[in-house]
Amino acid sequence: MEIMRLVVTGPVGAGKSTFIRSVSEIEVVDTDRRATDDALLIKKRTTVAFDFGRLQFGPDMALHLYGTPGQSRFDFMWDILIQKAHAYILLVAAHRPHEFREARRIMTFMKQRSPSPMIIGLTHTDCSGAWDAANIALALGYPDPTRRPPIVAVNANETASVAQAVISLVQFTWAGSLAPTT
């Protein structure tokens, strides 16, 4: 069985679990538990180990999606998951500037731990107070538009949008390997 592992990471409430649920063909295996402390302000339940989703698209080909816990006290799981990842997507809620620094912390961690390629997925871009991609890129530490990972808007609730984000991640990661498809 050939397997690709993609990691979905980002701060609490960025939409990681929803993202995986939207595209997984199996019931997502989650480790959501009742949120405590700060996470409770954003949602009632939060992932404490990881989410797992799967997409089989051939007799011996499957995509595995792993969602990291958003709270940094579970950051040992970030390490375990990123070490095995082919690529990862950092989800950032565009309407929560409060979380941009946390997203930056997670990204710094991931970049130190793994050379895997990444893209940035912006969720909640249609919400009031949402920042645009250029300013979020700056807030995440990417002042040069020519030297930053691709940034895509994604609606974690919509399968089509999530599928498009995964395509973007795959195409960016293996830009040289993919022949044009019709």
């Binding site: 397997i3 690709m4 080909m61 993919l178």
Partner: peptide, 16 residues
């Protein structure tokens, strides 16, 4: 992560 084949990538993108 073990490398994946080109046919894997093309099948995945086509499927998505």
């Amino acid at each position: 992560a073990a490398p994946v084949s080109q046919s894997f990538l093309q099948n995945l993108v086509g499927f998505l």
